[in-house]
Design a protein around this nucleic acid. Structure first.
Lengths: 249, 249
DNA sequence: CTTTCTTTGGATCGGCGATCCAAAGCGCAT
DNA sequence: ATGCGCTTTGGATCGCCGATCCAAAGAAAG
């Protein structure tokens, strides 16, 4: 078999009519890069997609980039994957599943709930694109594990059945909200070369310039905006909801 | 104002060379559609964009569709608008501002908070694309009004200053989470021609087929999933939050 | 009327997701 | 072993998108 180096392929494309299929094959023998020896698979593709996403955000996942990274063509990828959405969903499921696998359920239900929420928070913090995709498709199969754990822990907290469903949904909605916001911040951080502190300073400055008479609260909150820690604030929010759930009996 | 009928534009385009700049003008006089008499403006464009978004979701807002709807060209639009993101943000601000303008602050802070959250919920329910854009950019200028109102109402609820900032953020995050989820549902509804009930039935059926031993909570929640009302569940969540605030002092 | 500036229309570009097809390998039946 | 069909691969191609660019058309200034 002739080992052909991946040089430039044919530059001059046929300038045939616009819609004509290439039925009558021309004389020129088309050079082909050799077929890959190691088999492509859905897992390999998902893995490569995850690395692209982690490296450059959601915009870095393009079919073109995938073909380059895997040294293959479009057809090979689309043979294992339905479309780009399928790929993004699979990568998200992958991350979520991994997070849940590492989770240990504590004895105290309250602490376990807090730990689960924080686990999801940290995962989204590490992979912001997961937050975006998750807030777009909150009912992925991988999330069922989450709902189940939350439901059980609420049961352990003696939340009665009629309210348990609403309580679980509320908690999930809160986590999703933070996820989306975090992902948005991370996106902005990557887009601009201003880091998180600079971005917050920017918002805080705009807030500080508001009329203190019309916007007393926002105007006064600028200091806290600069200093606050996202993770701690998130946990505080979880505690608020847990307290509210306990108060509802 | 002269309403120009949307007649056919020029059909036959010039078939110039592929990459050559049209410096040396050829002999053929290029036919031009007449210039519009009524002035274009940023507001008119934002209005048209909103109608497109309401009509066909986020994917319906394309520059091409805008030029057709306004009977104009790309250049005219880009003269008034920075880029597509600017346009989407402006349309979102427009909707949010309108919602806030119609809001009346009640005497009871608890009821007022509930009303504000529901107002945002209803607006996003009516314009799902607002939810997506809002969860992507939670710090739009139009949202400052919201933060301010929430802060004042929390103050009226005697939430002390150190906790007020966290509490306001938590509530906003919760609302954002619901917003994103709602927008996702609406998107799916529009994509498939299955309506909301059919979609929920689909999810519920998948849940029902899970192993009842491994997933007792999710398996049992299918009935509630089918029957629950999004709006009521959202309000329940707000009440949980309010109870949590009260419990934490 | 002439010049200058603002606003408009549309050709064009590069990049994207998706489709399609032929080549290449692989396995099974003969 | 040999031919034949099925699976997998590589890449040309299509249509559409956002964005850029430029010349024409009018409005304003002189």
């Amino acid at each position: 078999m002739v080992k052909r180096t991946p040089e430039e392929t044919s530059e001059e494309t046929s300038e045939g009519t616009s819609a004509g299929p290439s039925k009558s094959s021309s004389a020129a023998a088309p050079p082909r890069t050799p077929r890959r020896t190691d088999g492509l698979s859905r897992e390999v593709i998902v893995q490569a997609a995850t690395e692209l996403l982690d490296g450059g955000g959601e915009s870095a996942l393009t079919l073109r980039a995938l073909t380059v990274r895997l040294s293959t063509g479009y057809g090979a990828i689309y043979h294992h994957v339905a479309d780009k959405g399928d790929l993004l969903a699979a990568a998200t499921d992958d991350v979520i599943t991994r997070v849940l696998a590492d989770m240990v359920m504590d004895a105290d239900p309250r602490e376990a709930l807090r730990r689960m929420a924080v686990g999801l928070f940290d995962a989204i913090d590490a992979h912001p694109w997961v937050g975006t995709e998750l807030s777009r498709q909150p009912w992925r199969p991988a999330m069922v594990e989450f709902y189940e754990s939350i439901g059980r822990l609420l049961d352990a907290l003696a939340v009665p059945e009629p309210a348990r469903f609403d309580a679980a949904g509320t908690l999930v909605n809160y986590v999703m909200g933070v996820a989306g916001q975090n992902a948005a911040n991370a996106r902005r951080r990557a887009g601009d070369d201003t880091d998180r502190a600079a971005f917050l300073d920017n918002v805080a400055e705009q807030w500080a310039q508001l009329d203190p008479d019309r916007y007393p609260f926002v105007h006064a909150a600028t200091t806290r905006l600069r200093e606050h820690d996202d993770r701690e604030q998130f946990i505080t929010g979880v505690d608020i909801f847990l307290a509210g759930i306990a108060a509802l009996h």
